[in-house]
Amino acid sequence: MSDIQTSTVSEEGFASTSQVGDFELTIDATNEDGPDPNQVLVADYASCFLPAFRVGGQQTGHDDLGKVQIDADADLNDDDDLERISFAIHVEANLDDGEFDEIVDRAEGICHVHAALREELHADIEVHGGAF
């Protein structure tokens, strides 16, 4: 038996509903009835990276980062394939650049979505401390 099972159905058009455990997610290639697949992938990446960033903070002795927000940007090529992703991470804690770099390095090793993406799609990351 596999570790992850989903079921995705489309009755008509380009929207589909995915069942993931007890949750439903509507994804629409036309971006009318839900986010499109590329938007979902970027949001999924950020949603994975944020807790990985918190764990990286804990592993480096920074248990209380406070509020953390990731603003993600992505560019598409002419074929609408993802070409570039960047994260601006805003952190309530005001650490120095070296401390943030160490946390980011650890988060990159923890985030499963980061590991699953081809290397040229790994997010370019900037961290801004004292943000809130």
Rank of each mutant, 00 (worst) to 15 (best):
Q5I: 15
Q5L: 14
T6V: 15
T6R: 01
S7D: 12
S10A: 13
E11M: 05
E12W: 08
F14H: 08
A15M: 12
A15Y: 10
A15Q: 13
T17I: 12
T17A: 02
S18V: 09
V20C: 11
G21C: 10
G21P: 09
D22K: 08
F23M: 11
F23C: 05
L25E: 01
T26N: 06
T26P: 00
D28F: 05
D28K: 05
A29N: 09
A29S: 13
T30R: 11
E32N: 13
E32A: 15
D33Y: 14
P35N: 13
N38H: 07
Q39K: 09
V42T: 01
A43S: 12
A43V: 07
A46K: 01
A46Q: 02
S47I: 01
S47E: 03
C48P: 10
C48M: 06
F49D: 03
F49M: 05
R54A: 14
V55K: 07
G56V: 07
Q58T: 06
Q58R: 13
G61R: 06
G61A: 05
D64F: 01
V68T: 10
V68N: 02
Q69G: 04
Q69N: 11
D71M: 00
D73S: 14
D73Y: 07
L76H: 02
N77T: 06
D80A: 09
D80Q: 10
D81G: 12
E83L: 12
R84I: 01
R84L: 09
I89H: 02
H90E: 14
N94I: 08
N94P: 03
E99Y: 00
E99F: 01
E99A: 09
E102C: 00
E102S: 12
I103Y: 07
I103P: 05
A107D: 04
A107C: 05
E108G: 07
E108T: 03
G109M: 04
H112K: 14
V113D: 02
A116D: 14
E119I: 11
E120W: 07
E120A: 12
L121Y: 01
L121S: 00
D124K: 06
V127E: 01
V127Y: 01
G129R: 03
A131E: 02
F132Q: 13
